[in-house]
Design a protein around this nucleic acid. Structure first.
Lengths: 198, 198, 198, 198
DNA sequence: TATGAATGAGAGTTCATTCAT
DNA sequence: GATGAATGAACTCTCATTCAT
């Protein structure tokens, strides 16, 4: 029997991950020390290593845990649409942009960390792997969405689904980057409308 | 060794900056040591400091020097268009995406470094300043382009120029990020066409 | 390893300070590296920084800790005099010189470091502050001593107490400097006698 | 035939030494770089090495050149006394203190450097040698002075000349140190009077 | 001679990680 | 399990000295 119940352990992990988000968002991966995170989590420096073997693993766990949040939020929002709305890919597309915007604004710290992860991925293989996996999932979800839209007849049948999905993901990523660099420099709703009418 | 001619000095600086691009692209800003750069440039560690006072300044100089290359490449390409083509904003937009794609593929290392700069900007004020300045210039250039397109009648007159410019920049940034994460995962020409017909 | 008891911590600090005295006395402040001190103390280089944030702070702590030792030694020696002796300022003055001499001979290394501190003070503000404070205390103690001597009638009533105190301190400082430059080049007892009969 | 006349060379040396005094007085031996000195002298960094082989040698030359200035100043002042005055050791002693005081106040920078030399001597053998030599000369001069005073009958015949000379030198050194640490903290004339009546 | 660019050993300091308690 | 003291490799930056020009 483990000394800590699984629940306690999970709670402790979450506590550390939350602290990590705060620290990473504030000073970046390299500017944050393990001690910073432990202090923010209110535990001893060494305790962190009982839950995550390395700083990299900690970041990875963080990314894994919350990387898909946006995807989920989108899925939930789409599910909440009325059948009529769901039949309209344009409507759905607008929703995707809007929900992403809300996500960025509500979870600014987390989003900032995830975006840094995209950069870290270029130099840390383990993170690259995770990021890649997540991007594939995003891509797949987006393609499903678009394919549905094509089937519904609102997008022309010859639409290159993969390219279109890539484009939308790219746009969203770029908007997030822009937002973080200059919060408030554009209006998410306007952007959403523009994407639709592009 | 009397004072270096301005040309020699500039050449030496360029040599260091080139070495820096190689190193930063390979191991990232934090994973690269000043010694790595010096070794890559074929000079002694201390010599680097004769040209750039700090690592940060070196990165900044690099960013400043080449940050506008894409902008210039686009401007040149646009200027090379026939008057007829230049009258078409769609044509111009496609060109912008294509040129960006070529830039990314031809200067992969440099682009990768500049992209990391966008992340570093979140935590290093001096870099933030430089990045911000550059983004504004990009935004201005893009807005001019779109405004011309609107005037030419190929974009509807009620187009929100600023938002549209932001959107295109975001898309380009996102495409670059995607490309670096998974080179070859999409086709730039297809992307360009898709952007037009969005 | 749970938190160190205050006592253990103090012991460790003392260990480092002792090592520092040895090193500084041997090679001087600038000729001593933090690694030298750590090695002398038998700990790792980084451990030093768990106790003192900078090299300067380490020196300062050292100065603060032992700077007043001579003052104390003198006070104790004076207190040990018989009432009859204590009534004689000449007797006391001789004692001051003798005790200083013993101090220098018994704690040669420490005295040498403190003397270097007087020089460092000229260029390192934080040390200057500490040195100044200590000199004021010395001056005050010496003035008290002389004032008592004047009151006892062994010094003429018109004696300029401050100047006289300065003079004695200067003489002691100079004797210490001379001693360190050429140990044994004079006899402390003879010097003490000479000071009395000056 | 040397390319430079001896005079030019000597002038250049003096120029460097003067610059060195300024720099050393301001930032200390270790805080001063060879470049600082060259800049202050208005020559190139490398040129310094045409005149002095190392930083240490430069300091040494400086010490050698001006170390005996105080001694000379005293000798000159003594020589300027009337025969009657010269017959009085007390008068002479007062003069020594006064002249030293003037020297310190007029050549503050130089004195400060020479005093640092006394500290450096503890760790740099070549400087130690020079300092020791100079101290011996000072001691000898002082002993001559006192011996004359004894002969003149103003000091008791049983005076321990060597100890007395040491004491006076120590006092002067201490007064200089005190003055540099806190310029103006005492009055040289008062000190001179006090020394006489000690 | 004089210049100042180049060198490279070495400094102080940081921090991810380990492990005795 | 938890603690936090200890480790030591690695980093950025400095500067006395050399030497091609």
């Amino acid at each position: 029997m483990p000394r800590l119940t699984a629940m306690t352990r999970a709670a402790r992990e979450a506590r550390i991950l939350n602290a990590a988000v705060t620290c990473f968002a504030h000073t970046g991966y390299h500017g944050t020390t393990m001690e910073d995170i432990a202090a923010e989590a209110g535990i001893a420096k060494g305790a962190t290593y009982l839950y995550f073997p390395t700083k990299e693993a900690l970041f990875l766990a963080l990314y894994q845990r919350w990387g898909c949040d946006a995807r989920e939020a989108i899925q939930i929002a789409l599910a909440a649409l009325s059948p009529a709305e769901r039949a309209s890919p344009k409507r759905m597309l607008r929703l995707v942009v809007e929900v992403t915007g809300q996500h960025v604004q509500r979870n600014a710290a987390l989003c900032r960390v995830l975006m840094e992860g995209r950069t870290l991925a270029a130099f840390i293989p383990a993170i690259a792997e995770q990021v890649t996996r997540e991007q594939w999932q995003n891509q797949a979800q987006m393609e499903d969405l678009i394919r549905a839209g094509v089937a519904a007849g609102e997008w022309p049948p010859e639409t290159d689904v993969a390219t279109r999905a890539t484009l939308i993901r790219a746009t969203l990523h770029g908007l997030m980057a822009t937002w973080h660099a200059a919060p408030g420099s554009f209006d998410w709703n306007a952007a959403a409308m523009a994407v639709i009418d592009w």
